[in-house]
């Protein structure tokens, strides 16, 4: 029962983070929101009984992917690109 409540809560958070990531005005906010989706997904994996996948998703999905995105943003910013949609 507790698992069900946790999963519903995490699903709501990750879905709203996904919609925010698509609609956000600033690119940095969108990148961080997609990192939040991965973090919530890793907790869901832990609840579903897959600790290996949870470790991988938490370290790769929400750690390294966000860092790679931010480096790419930094390099594009240094070229002087305006980020309107």
């Amino acid at each position: 029962m507790l698992n069900l409540v946790i999963i519903i809560l995490l699903s709501i958070i990750s879905l709203s983070a996904a919609i925010y990531a698509v609609r956000a005005k600033k690119l940095v906010n969108a990148v961080v929101a997609s990192g939040v989706i991965s973090l919530m997904a890793s907790i869901v994996f832990l609840v579903l009984g897959a600790p290996d996948v949870a470790m991988t998703e938490a370290s790769i999905g929400s750690g390294l992917t966000t860092v790679v995105f931010l480096y790419a943003l930094k390099q594009i910013k240094s070229k002087g690109e305006k980020d309107d949609d």
Partner: peptide, 25 residues
């Protein structure tokens, strides 16, 4: 629907997470 290339890549990352959730479920 997005035009900016990085937003398309973000969409790809979201699809990736969704597929992983489906397979584990």
């Amino acid at each position: 629907s997005r035009k900016h290339l990085i937003r398309i890549v973000i969409g790809f990352a979201i699809v990736d997470t969704g597929i992983n959730l489906v397979i584990v479920a």
